[in-house]
Amino acid sequence: MRSLQSNGKPKITAKNFNLFYGDFQALKEINVDIPEHSITSIIGPSGCGKSTFLRSINRMNELIPCVKTTGKIFLDANDIFTQDVVELRKQVGMVFQRPNPFPKSIFDNVAYGPRAHGLKNKAVLEEIVEKSLTDAALWDEVKDNLHKSGLALSGGQQQRLCIARALAVEPQVILMDEPASALDPIATLKIEELIQNLKKEYTIVIVTHNMQQAARASDHTMVFNMNPDRSGYIIEYGKTSQIFTNPHEKITEDYISGRFG
């Protein structure tokens, strides 16, 4: 078990987790603890299963036919695979690689989740929308245009809208799949700053190809690598400060110093 010497208690725990696409094993024996109220980044070469693992945490992989898993993932002490998937995704929000606001107004975008969960009271919705947009550092920019389409915003604003949309459901964990890879550097830094503020209330797991981003924005770093049979596994997991100055594994060293392969 790769557990971390960290003060936080584990929020997400994977135990002997394996994932298969048909006959192909994409993830092999993932054993890991992700601490609460911290930012954990997942890095590693392309195709090593980073996103696959991330998408396992809210069972997003189940959308793909022929995915099979063995082993367990726990959220707190609850096995996510025995939980109702809708209930799970309410607790584990997700932000995607490309900003994907719905073609609706800003307000409706943020209110979408609460509405889906049955909230109808307009006053309460308005409150949630304002709080979520404020937490996502977008409120001041859009408060006068809440009826405007989410698609009319800039890329960086759209991604913050998506974060606000995720926050509106009041999740405990936010998964981010390369959330800044489609954004310009300034928008990227804004998102990173925002994530720092969010970790007080949420546990954040972020997949990134950008090593500088992982180094800047995360507390812990999980390094994935590929077995010769192309299945992914965790080669090293530790404090970000340690991984980027003094990784224990040669492969990690090669990967983060750009001498991989």
Binding site: E87, N100, A116
Partner: peptide, 21 residues
């Protein structure tokens, strides 16, 4: 596909996703 993922990721059901987004 990202619209569907976005909606499902928020905990909406499949039917809500189809009707809502």
């Amino acid at each position: 596909e990202s619209y569907r993922e976005g909606s499902l990721g928020l905990g909406a059901t499949k039917w809500q996703t189809v009707i809502g987004v």
